[in-house]
Simulated scan of single mutants.
Amino acid sequence: METEQIQKELASYIGKLLRDNFGRGPETVFVSVKQPFITVYLRKFLSPMEKVLMSEKQESFVQSSRDILMKSLIPEIKAYMKLLTACEIEEFYYDWNLQNQSGMFVAICPESAKLDQLATLDYPGKQEVHEEINNVSQQAQKVPEEVVSIKLNERTIVVIRTGIFVTIEREFIRMGQTEVLRTAKRRVEKRLLHNSTRMESILDAKIDDSFTAWDFERDKSVILFIINPNQKGSNVLDK
């Protein structure tokens, strides 16, 4: 099956799956397949009940209820991705931007050679992106042991951080307190990313959305930037 057809099939399947389980599906689903990555960007995805909860400042309740639902949906999504791409999904990340009514999934296949090849590809501002990611990470916990970023297409940049947890975070993980840790890190890291005005200048593009998620067992994190090159960032670097 051609890549474009796979992307359409996945978008249709995920839209229906979310609609069946959340009561309302996303208005649009954008899927990008570029081995070893499958990325999914969801827009206008907030059910009527969730809108009420958000208006009552119950964002944490919406997050936790979605986390519960996703535990049952992730195996189904991974199985369908494997069916279409013949790729066993090794890692799966998701995150929501409830204020923007958006969300993302990032699936990674165990294709280390392809990942290494993509990681060597350059794009404008790549080194500066890594520096800013290190800066944000240091404010939240510590500088990652490794940062890899890939520009999958004109609108999608994936950043992978490994070796990011400090001693107290690793102790929370050993104690099984990952949900508490996830909630705290969501608030801190996403706030720092949102406040990072330098990133748009580096990329010379508007950042429409940013997401971050973690794999606590692997001591790893994925950040996804959805950018709009037609709306340029403030060119602070040239000043």
Rank of each mutant, 00 (worst) to 15 (best):
T3R: 09
T3N: 08
Q5K: 12
I6P: 01
Q7H: 07
Q7M: 04
Q7D: 03
K8L: 12
L10G: 07
L10N: 08
L10Q: 03
L10E: 11
S12V: 08
R19F: 11
R19S: 13
R19P: 01
G25T: 11
G25M: 05
P26C: 01
P26E: 03
T28A: 06
V29I: 08
F30P: 00
V33I: 11
V33H: 04
P36W: 03
P36E: 00
F37E: 00
F37L: 00
I38N: 01
F45Y: 13
L46Y: 08
P48Q: 04
P48T: 05
M49Y: 02
V52I: 09
L53F: 11
K57N: 14
S65H: 05
R66Q: 14
I68L: 12
I68D: 02
K71V: 15
S72Q: 11
Y80E: 12
E90K: 07
F92I: 13
Y93K: 04
W96I: 04
N97C: 05
L98N: 06
L98G: 02
Q99W: 12
Q99S: 07
Q101W: 02
Q101Y: 12
Q101N: 13
G103F: 07
M104C: 13
M104H: 05
F105R: 00
V106C: 11
A107Q: 00
I108M: 09
A113P: 06
L115N: 10
D116E: 13
D116Q: 08
L118H: 01
T120I: 03
L121K: 10
D122T: 13
D122Y: 11
G125W: 09
G125N: 03
Q127G: 03
Q127E: 15
E128I: 07
H130P: 08
I133T: 12
I133K: 06
N134R: 07
Q138H: 05
A140L: 07
A140C: 11
Q141M: 15
Q141A: 10
K142I: 01
P144Q: 05
E145W: 06
E145V: 07
E145D: 15
I150Y: 00
N153M: 08
E154P: 03
R155V: 02
I157R: 06
V158S: 09
V159H: 09
T162R: 13
G163V: 06
G163F: 08
V166S: 00
T167L: 15
I168V: 13
R174K: 14
M175C: 03
G176P: 12
Q177C: 09
Q177G: 02
T178G: 13
E179K: 14
V180T: 12
V180H: 01
L181E: 10
R182M: 11
R182G: 03
E189A: 10
L192C: 04
L193T: 05
L193M: 15
L193V: 07
L193S: 08
N195Y: 10
N195I: 01
T197Y: 14
R198Q: 05
M199F: 09
M199Q: 00
I202Y: 08
I202D: 04
I202A: 04
A205G: 04
K206W: 04
D209E: 15
S210I: 14
A213S: 14
A213P: 10
D215R: 06
F216D: 01
E217K: 13
E217R: 08
E217M: 02
R218F: 06
D219Y: 06
D219P: 04
K220A: 09
K220C: 14
S221Y: 03
I223P: 01
I223T: 15
F225C: 03
I226L: 14
N228C: 10
P229F: 01
N235A: 06
V236L: 14
D238S: 03
